[in-house]
């Protein structure tokens, strides 16, 4: 491609965006609306997944030891636990630490105890990477020598696992549907916008324009429109996300257990993804639509 043609393409693409105002507005609006809905849902999905993940990480399995177990064996058990892939982190709570915590709860009543009543209550608190693997870990721990008792919450683990699975399928389904609808709507708008300019394409071909020369400005124009159409909802969502999360945290104290992802953690992926979709759909839609009219 000659430099002259390159600049001509850029110039005509930009002029096309400004010249065909209704096409530009209609296409930008369609892309923006689709990607806005897509963005809202993705943001919610990512946050729900994050909240569930947080909840999962607070589910712990507690392991108590046989009476009179040596400190060395406790350390060995700790090493065995640490080697397991399903374990996120674990910590040893000694009998003294357990009593210290509990005596804070008891207050002045704790003074009546002369000995540590939790002498045999040293334990490991184990937090999982993935709550679905709780039963796998428990069956392993059952076979480890020196372990007397394992406390776990099957209900919490099963509920979270269930929620997680449902959310994964529902969100993937909805996002795919939204994505497909967005592409269909955007492509239709681009196709219609270019089809009404069929005569313009025909004239260009009659005077000897190559397919590339005709197509390039249209494609570039559609890519600019796609970029604008994707940038608007992303900017808006980024702005609204901050307001929404602040509002929930400040005004709805009973929802304080909800921990939202920082905006940037979401939008660092969502923005480039949406911009690529906008530009990509502009490119693909216009490329094939113009192609249909090039056989003159």
């Amino acid at each position: 491609m000659k430099i002259r043609t390159f600049f001509y393409t850029i110039e005509q693409g930009v002029i096309g965006v400004l010249r065909n105002k209704w096409f530009t507005v209609a296409t930008v609006a369609t892309i923006s609306a689709c990607l806005f809905v897509f963005g809202i849902f993705s943001t919610i999905a990512v946050n729900v997944a994050y909240i569930v993940k947080n909840a999962e990480q607070n589910v712990s399995v507690t392991v108590f030891f046989d009476e009179g177990i040596s400190d060395e064996r406790i350390e060995e058990i700790g090493e065995l636990i640490g080697r397991r892939s399903e374990v996120g982190r674990y910590e040893l709570i000694t009998a003294e630490e357990a009593w210290e915590d509990f005596s804070e709860v008891l207050g002045e009543y704790a003074d009546s105890f002369t000995e540590n009543p939790l002498e045999n209550c040293a334990n490991y608190q184990i937090y999982l990477n993935d709550v679905t693997k709780q039963s796998q870990l428990v069956s392993y721990l059952d076979g480890v020598e020196g372990i007397r008792k394992i406390n776990k919450s099957d209900f919490t683990a099963d509920t979270l696992t269930g929620i997680n699975m449902v959310l994964v399928y529902v969100f993937i389904g909805i996002i795919l549907i939204l994505f497909a609808v967005s592409i269909f709507l955007i492509n239709n708008t681009v196709t219609m916008g270019i089809s009404v300019r069929k005569e313009e394409i025909t004239i260009m071909k009659y005077v000897g324009a190559t397919d590339f020369f005709v197509r390039a400005p249209f494609v570039f124009e559609a890519m600019i429109i796609g970029l604008i159409g994707a940038a608007i909802p992303m900017w808006l969502l980024y702005y609204l996300y901050g307001i929404a999360t602040n509002l929930i945290n400040e005004k709805f104290a009973f929802l304080s257990f909800l921990t939202f992802l920082p905006a940037w953690d979401i939008f660092v992926y969502l923005i480039p993804f949406s911009l690529c979709i906008g530009v990509g759909i502009g490119f693909v839609g216009s490329f094939f639509t113009v192609h249909k009219h090039l056989r003159v």
């Binding site: 004239i203 071909k205 009659y206 000897g208 324009a209």
Partner: peptide, 15 residues
Amino acid sequence: PKFRRTLGVVFQDFR
């Protein structure tokens, strides 16, 4: 396209 550049074309509806 190269061939058409050797032609000039005029239509009834101007185009």
